[in-house]
Design a protein around this nucleic acid. Structure first.
Lengths: 332, 332
DNA sequence: ATGAAAGCGCTAACAT
DNA sequence: ATGTTAGCGCTTTCAT
């Protein structure tokens, strides 16, 4: 494989000169620059990343922390972020982590070994070790979707959005509103709080019998959630599912039980993943602008890496309620 | 950041000794090894990847080529492959590429720069430049899902599977069977060929009016495909969609037109993505064992990288037809 | 504007 | 079994 030295030799200049043109430094004779560029072009020389990383003590790559449960929403977000990051010149490497906090040690070792430029989190990490390390090493981190102490965040306003979702249901005349929620994480908690608050504000009595927390935000767990709810007695005319995937699982179970959506029960989801607009019925949901969230996260991280301007610790991306077919008025 | 030299100094040994214990070499005094290990443990030292990569002239990372259209099936496969690769000690880096062949140059430059250990392709690349490079540089490549000349492949038997799908429909009494297919790629072509062959074998006349090729395998294009088919006149009682996402889009359009699946039209998909078992109706499809495909691909690449045993150029993973709710007998 | 030289953190002969 | 030495391919002072 060609090295910088080879190019220098062929061009009859020193390695420093070649390095300078490679890095677009000033003060290079225009002719020489052109000639060297031409040579690089012709030979197809590409600088060795490892060598460059080593001497520059950075890797030009950012890590993306993804839970192994990797749901559809996160998958879409991942791909947006990767593209955005790459437009800034970063490579990206994925770090799958278990939600129970195991494997954090390995994750940290990789972080240390690789000299990442930064990290974007698609999900919370529970282990404090992680935050100790990033804080102490000064590794730039931005999280998406969830609030974490001292970590800048790009997200929608979960409480506000969830309140709108519940209010949509209330506005449709529903009073008995169920909730299926993923437990234990910041955004899940926000959505649940908003659910309770909104009902209270509407003067609807709190009924925990209509609430179930499942472990993941997937369709599979949506099924579990709905089965549980049904088992407790079918005492609700509407459901707020904390994610579209949860909603899909729930609707699946309802369908199997011969309960129609939205005729018998209205269901509203959250996220607006692609499939929601194809599902039968099309799912009413809260749209989280994946593109904007991803782009802002990438930009925010880039700024931090570049030691740039002091950026807001929290960027709120406006959500939007999308009313489709899975909810309808009780009046009938 | 701690370096190997620091550890050596603290341990009162030479850097080579530390390097040796780090790499699990033989012929090291057991006590010394233990002592050094302990020191590493205590200090939290982790070797610098860039330095190691440089001197070893490899990166311990493999690239995964993903089309920017990144569909659900590929997303699932990607995550399986990443996990599997990581169990062999590889990192993975994604390479998103446009299907039209633009951006191959950048892709190649990255490949050159990074000294990847290998590459796994989730999709065909059209540009010959890519194959020239991999062949000439000896970079190990394995492709999944599609056949590419001189590249080892892990996939299901598309023709056989598609034939089964079509035969399932025929067995149900359908004679007028439509096809929505993504065009231009090896697996699409195989599935289409099988469609024609199977109909011919059943003595059903070829009717290209019932066939439409769309550009992508997504639900959106499934909608386009079905609209086109309907526009040509509703002259079919069953549909073979070359992917589940295509099927979902097609069913969506049918539903909007008031045409019932499976009562009026049977639809069979391909892939068995997660959502297919939650969709309403649950989609009859050909199951591609994502886990096996991913694991075999990772293992096969690992063997090639390790310069191991001569491995089959093509690994065929058995598929399975999953009969669910979107197809039914014509008899009525 | 350019070259010489040092050095990033590691591995791998080569000695011993 | 262990230390010494020489790079790997690049960037970056420091001279000039």
């Amino acid at each position: 494989m060609l090295s910088l030295k080879d190019i220098a030799k062929q061009a009859g200049v020193s390695t420093s000169t070649v390095s300078r043109v490679l890095n677009g430094k000033k003060y290079i004779n225009a002719e020489k620059r052109a000639q060297i560029l031409k040579l690089i072009q012709e030979t197809g020389y590409v600088p060795n990343k490892a060598a460059r990383d080593m001497v520059m003590k950075r890797s030009f790559t950012v890590g993306i922390i993804i839970p192994i449960t990797f749901n559809m929403f996160q998958r879409q977000l991942f791909s947006v972020i990767e593209r955005s990051l790459s437009s800034f010149g970063y490579h990206t490497e994925v770090f799958f982590i278990a939600l129970d906090g195991s494997g954090v040690k390995e994750c940290l070792d990789r972080l240390k070994a690789e000299n990442l430029d930064g990290v974007i989190m698609l999900h919370e990490i529970k282990s404090p070790l992680f935050y100790e390390y990033t804080a102490q090493s000064g590794l730039p981190v931005v999280s998406t979707l969830c609030n974490i102490d001292n970590i800048p965040t790009v997200k929608t306003d979960d409480k506000q959005a969830a309140a709108e979702a519940v209010n949509h249901l209330i506005g449709l005349g529903h009073r008995k509103i169920g909730l299926i929620c993923g437990g234990g994480f910041s955004f899940g908690n926000s959505r649940m709080e908003a659910y309770y608050d909104t009902l209270a504000a509407a003067g609807i009595e709190r009924n925990e019998n209509r609430v179930v927390c499942v472990q993941q935000y997937s369709s599979e767990f949506g099924m579990y959630g709905m089965r549980e709810l049904l088992l407790r007695g079918r005492d609700f005319s509407a459901l707020f599912a904390a994610s579209d995937e949860l909603a899909i699982g729930a609707i699946r179970v309802l369908k199997d039980e011969g309960i129609r959506v939205p005729e018998d029960i209205s269901v509203i989801g959250f996220d607006d993943i692609e499939i929601s607009n194809y599902f039968i019925p099309r799912i009413t949901t809260i749209h989280q602008p994946i593109k904007e969230i991803g782009d802002h996260a990438a930009l925010s991280l880039h700024r931090r890496i570049s030691g740039g301007i002091n950026i807001d610790p929290e960027i709120i991306i406006p959500h939007k309620m999308i009313i489709r077919e899975s909810t309808r008025s009780m009046a009938r």
